[in-house]
Design a protein around this nucleic acid. Structure first.
Length: 725
DNA sequence: GGATTCATTCTTTTT
DNA sequence: GAATGAATCC
């Protein structure tokens, strides 16, 4: 950005003491305000060590550090809430009775722990609900509720509640036993620490006299309390956010935190930044017209001095292939006219939608990068290897132990693990120690009869672990440590079992080694613990070179904070955006609207909103309805390049039976009572939609997709008495 | 104990 | 349609 600070920005940057809230609309120079304010603080003599900048993602934290470094040589702590909490707990968690060498469990780790808890409690049948239990636990922790604080909720049946409560309880007990914290615990325990330990509170409250928080609208209860605890002494809290871009309520984010800022912090100053430096006006006005449909918001109106620009282009296509072809065409055409691929983005609501665009881009030989998605550190081979390191550091970490003990196959399968677990629980010994005892003094744990072969392989495993432990102690280079771990464990044997993926996975391991050697160079006194911590908190595999000449593909959630010349938002259909699961409540619906708003406001010059009439969804072809959000956009900023008649006439046309062009149906349906796309009601199955109409030996037959069961049934007309829906 | 096949489930977003 | 889990067979 080349502009100077406008008066509002200047006021924010020059602010020094006391709480301040900056409501920063999309494209109003949010990050710029934070970085400039930090530099301003440094310039007036605030020591770098007293400034703390908190962001929401690792990417944002790194970006901020980078931008500060462009303006100043001083080193400022920029981190995410989670990494801040991890840092604090590493130093001080012993004050509340945990070991400072805890492991951090990611989503997968905690899921498998919850699974095993359910099993222990005898709820075998509840396996399908692991995920919902996980999210309930997560929700409870975000609200800082321990198992005993829970009250039966009207939404849960009493049995469900019992299951939930006891599982949560056992899960916490196991985490402590395994010396592990999950993501939510990092925040939870950190708040707990600051609340209960006076010395910790005093220490951390005076450590940072200036705290800045980005994306404040996304804070949850735990993050809010952590913030409050940390700023209590100095009250120099500077938060920046935009309520209209709050898109993480499903993760516990509480929009009230930003809306109540003035009440929470006495004498808070508020500044609104409403000038947008990113988009041209048709785009901006269209986005404004959408977000104004939300009822609960902090009123503001963005404006831009960048001219009218182009109207927002709306198109509907026959099916998702046509849709992707159109997007390809637009991308190529802009590229031909001189816009680099890296300035273009394709946004979708769900990750599952990315595949068709990958295929299309591959076919067109257009370079692309998927941003977000399956992260490098969540790949199986990487997690396996890191688990080896984790067990070595944290010998009670049962989850990492059971992940690695039989990789490669050592003849030490589930039943062996089960037995060990029992012994370890009964003797309350770390799982690794049980193994050592088993080898050194086999008589003391008689129940575990091992074959000689098993003993040998267990010995082999322990040697690997021992090697890692010694290596860590003697500060061997990480690169060396990882290389040797792969060698000594014969892990590659395991990968070789799947020849298809072997090369890829091996390449990933090589990349891990490369990353490790980069770490070795960057930081001499880096310990293995630090390395593991950093990796467990990092989910995005930020591309090697972010400015690479390639089209970006990502979910709308991943788009926050970015901007693109050419922005395509695809799949604008009911059930996708807004997503099916968000349609029950108005709050969730408003969040979907904000999500689209975030996507639209990424666009600088060209914005495309596309949709399909038919789409393969959950394995079956479905007739899709255009997203309600399209109707909410102010018409004067839109254009429908593919059709002469307006989009709404098309919509009319499609809801009448005279549907002539259907790629998924047969033409025979012309004289039938129901046609493809008609809504019907079945007395047992409820409301449905005709997907296919055809003749069989039994007569007219329809394939009907039923909303209630989300499945398609083939029904013979004369037996199934279908009514018009 | 291990591998293969079959079946079922669940499809949102992520630190 | 993918990915996980259970059942079955070696």
């Amino acid at each position: 950005m080349t502009h100077h600070l406008n008066p509002h920005q200047d006021q924010a940057v020059k602010h020094i003491e006391g709480p301040m809230l900056v409501i920063a609309g999309a494209g109003s120079g949010k990050t710029r305000i934070i970085t400039h304010r930090i530099v301003h603080l440094l310039n007036i003599g605030v020591p770098a060590a007293e400034i703390l900048a908190v962001t929401f993602t690792n990417k944002a934290a790194e970006e901020m550090k980078h931008r500060i470094n462009q303006l100043s040589f001083k080193n400022i702590l920029t981190c995410t809430f989670h990494s801040l909490a991890a840092k604090i707990l590493r130093e001080s968690i012993h004050l509340i009775g945990f070991s400072n060498q805890f492991s951090i469990y990611d989503e997968d780790d905690s899921l498998s722990l919850i699974k095993s808890c359910l099993k222990t409690l005898g709820y075998e049948d509840e396996k399908s609900r692991v995920k919902s239990i996980k999210s309930s636990i997560s929700q409870a922790k975000n609200d800082l509720k321990q198992p005993n604080d829970l009250k039966a909720d009207s939404t849960l049946s009493s049995l469900d509640f019992t299951i939930f409560k006891s599982t949560y309880s056992l899960y916490q007990q196991k985490l402590k036993e395994y010396n592990a914290l999950d993501f939510d615990d990092l925040l939870f325990q950190c708040v707990h620490l600051l609340k209960t330990s006076e010395p910790a509170r005093v220490y951390y409250q005076s450590k940072w006299s200036f705290i800045l928080i980005d994306e404040y609208q996304d804070t949850n209860e735990a993050q809010y309390l952590l913030t409050k605890l940390l700023v209590q002494k100095h009250q120099n809290l500077f938060v920046v956010g935009d309520p209209d871009q709050s898109i993480y309520s499903w993760r516990g984010a509480n929009i009230q935190n930003i809306l109540n800022f003035e009440k929470d912090f006495k004498n808070a100053k508020v500044i609104k930044l409403e000038q947008n430096y990113r988009s041209t006006n048709h785009i901006l006005s269209a986005a404004n017209s959408l977000i104004q449909k939300n009822s609960s918001r902090y009123e503001k109106n963005l404006w831009s001095a960048l001219g009218d620009g182009e109207k927002v282009q709306i198109t509907t296509h026959e099916n998702e292939y046509e849709e992707s072809r159109y997007v390809m065409q637009r991308i190529s055409s802009h590229h031909a006219r001189g816009i680099g691929y890296e300035k273009m983005v394709i946004f979708y609501r769900t990750n599952a939608q990315s595949r068709i665009y990958e295929d299309a881009l591959l076919k067109q030989k257009i370079p692309y990068v998927i941003v977000g998605g399956i992260s490098f550190y969540q790949r199986r081979e990487i997690k396996d290897l890191l688990s080896y390191l984790k067990v070595a550091i944290s010998p009670s970490d049962f989850i990492s132990f059971s992940r690695t003990i039989n990789l490669p196959k050592r003849g030490l399968g589930p039943s062996f693990i089960e037995k060990l677990k029992e012994v370890s629980e009964r003797a309350s010994l770390p799982i690794l120690e049980v193994c050592t005892k088993l080898i050194c003094s086999p008589l003391s744990f008689i129940e575990c009869k091992l074959t000689t072969k098993q003993q040998e392989s267990l010995k082999g495993y322990l040697e690997v672990i021992e090697y890692i432990q010694n290596g860590a102690k003697n500060r061997i280079q990480l690169k060396e440590l990882i290389k040797k771990t792969i060698e000594k464990s014969n892990y590659l044997d395991h990968l070789k079992e799947d020849k298809e993926t072997y090369e890829d996975r091996k390449a990933n391991l090589d990349e891990l080694i490369t990353k490790a050697s980069e770490w070795d160079e960057e930081n001499e006194e880096l310990t293995l613990e630090h390395f593991l911590e950093e990796l467990s908190l990092k989910s995005s595999s930020e591309g090697k070179n972010p400015y690479h000449e390639s089209v970006k593909l990502m979910t709308l959630h991943n788009g926050k904070g970015l901007e693109f010349d050419v922005t395509c938002i695809v799949g604008l259909e009911e059930e996708i955006l807004p997503h099916v699961n968000s349609k029950h409540s108005n709050e969730e619906l408003e969040e979907e609207r904000r999500l689209l708003y975030v996507g639209m406001t990424r666009a600088k010059k060209h914005l495309y909103l596309t949709s399909s009439s038919y789409r393969m969804l959950w394995g079956t072809p479905r007739l899709m309805e255009p997203s309600r959000f399209l109707e909410e956009l102010d018409q004067e900023h839109l254009i429908y390049p593919l059709k002469k008649e307006s989009f709404f006439e098309r919509r009319e046309e499609r809801s009448t039976p005279a549907l002539s062009r259907q790629s998924f149906s047969e033409e025979k349906s012309a004289e039938d009572e129901f046609r493809v796309g008609s809504y019907v009601i079945h007395k047992d199955f409820g409301k449905g939609i005709i997907q296919k109409a055809y003749m069989t030996s039994l007569g007219k037959t329809y394939d009907v997709f039923f909303n209630d069961t989300r499945s398609t049934k083939s029904l013979v007309a004369k037996f199934a008495k279908l009514k018009r829906g």
